[in-house]
Amino acid sequence: MENYQKYLNPETLAQLHGLELQARLIVEGYVSGLHKSPYHGFSIEFAEHREYVPGDDLRYVDWKVFGKTDRYYLKQYEEETNYACYFLLDCSESMLYKSEASAVNKLQYAQLVTAALTYLVLKQQDAVGLATFDTGVRNFVRASSHPSHLKQLCHVMDVSPAQGETSLGPILHDLAERIRKRGLVVIVSDFFDDLPTLMLGLKHLRHRRHEVLVLHVIDPAEQDFTFVDPTLFKGLEQLPEQMTEPRSLRKAYQREFEAFLTQLQRGCRDLHMDYALLRTDQPLDVALRTFLAGRASRLHRT
């Protein structure tokens, strides 16, 4: 049997072509790695009526069927089957950064994560939508649960060029209005943007009663700042270039960066959003686990 787990590694995936295939391999790899899925029984694959057995939660009993047939059936996952999951993928220029330590740039990583999650959701027969954006919304694909939808989404991601600056705040306002149906919004970005406006956008989403999952993709070099020699840093997204001695600046830079991460995480926590920091040198299962754990907790909450 093929060892699917290796496909959780971005380095291995980078050698493959076709986002769809990659997505499938990721999910297979992840699922095969679990001896027993902790989420079994709550997945959408059992989205059908099931006869009541003692001990089942009475809240899920389908009383309409009972009225018709005088039998107890559980109406499981009615909500989930109508659940729409929107992925907001940042395609700004800053997502193109790739350090020597990582195999893929942030955008590729974000695409892999998005595709994998899309595959997972579609496999559970939920609807998936996608929005790519930089300074504005570039592509917007409405949510659909058709299995072939994956192909379309992958295509959109493949063809979305990385350009422009990130301005998440206005985009979130925009999308919050566009996505009418209440659902799950997964934002995949490096969030190199003005934090207050970003927070306002997130608040808007939350206001529309969307569940929000923040997947923060960063390159390891951006956190560790491992440069040694004097370096001329050329700013992406029209930022000026800077010549500096990285060794002496490392601590100061890391202080700034960690402050940014802390603020973002605190903001997400305040808004009851799930947050995951994804480094492009990490295996992809972190993203999947965060996603599924978030799903589970949400199921328990509702």
């Binding site: 220029e93 800053s94 997502m95 193109l96 950064y97 942030k106 490096d190 190199f192 960063i218 390159d219 951006e222 440069f227 020699d229 004097p230 370096t231 001329l232 840093f233 050329k234 700013g235 992406l236 997204e237 930022l239 000026p240 800077q242 960066f257």
Partner: peptide, 8 residues
């Protein structure tokens, strides 16, 4: 050295 840099 020169490098592109996102977290500018």
């Amino acid at each position: 050295r020169e490098t592109q840099w996102a977290a500018m």
